[in-house]
């Protein structure tokens, strides 16, 4: 632990109250560290001002790699490396290569995207994530505010969250 980090943690019961609260406190200049929810909340990413994820681009690039790799391999193997006469057909004709090309595209695209997702989200099967409140996977929405990010005092932030409908406000230090 390099240094102590102090957070104010607001607990919200309802997702609609939460989204409004996020919009309002951000308007007032509060900087939110992150909001943790038990399920994806519609409109929360916009309220927090997150940029759209670029994972679809990653998926497309991986897919394209798969397409090229599969086509190249098939044409090279059957057309050049060891051409075989199968029923007098062309050595390297495109139509029979499409199914394998398609499957390989899907395979690389899916796995590439998911591995990218795990890396950018810093998810791995070892080590514990930083948890502000264990109820955030059960039924509560948890808004974490880093004191170092904000000029306001602890009490002012607590009051602001309470005013916006937080059912309780706690402190958490790491």
């Amino acid at each position: 632990m390099e240094h102590d980090k102090n957070f104010v943690v607001g607990i919200f019961d309802d997702e609609d109250v939460l989204v409004h609260a996020v919009e309002n406190v951000r308007e007032k200049g509060l900087r939110i560290h992150e909001v943790y929810s038990p399920f994806p909340v519609h409109g929360l990413d916009e309220a927090l001002g997150y940029r759209r994820t670029r994972l679809p681009i990653a998926a497309f690039m991986f897919g394209l790699t798969g397409t090229c790799l599969a086509l190249f391999t098939q044409i090279w193997m059957l057309g050049y490396d060891w051409p075989m006469d199968i029923g007098g057909k062309n050595h390297a004709s495109l139509p029979p290569f499409i199914p394998v090309t398609f499957e390989f595209t899907v395979l690389l695209s899916a796995f590439g995207m998911v591995i990218t997702f795990l890396i950018v989200s810093n998810m791995k099967p070892y080590g514990w994530p930083r948890q502000f409140d264990l109820r955030s996977t059960d039924d509560k929405h948890v808004m974490a505010v880093d004191l170092a990010d904000n000029k306001l005092s602890k009490e002012e932030i607590s009051r602001m969250l309470k005013d916006q409908g937080a059912s309780e406000v706690n402190e958490k230090n790491f």
């Binding site: 943790y36 909340v41 929360l44 990413d45 791995k124 080590g127 994530p129 955030s136 996977t137």
Partner: peptide
């Protein structure tokens, strides 16, 4: 769970992954 924390940013990416899958 790969150390899932349920942050809004992760959920956003997660939903995008689910849709593409």
């Amino acid at each position: 769970s790969f150390g899932w924390s349920g942050g809004a940013k992760t959920w956003m990416r997660y939903e995008s992954v689910a849709l593409i899958l």
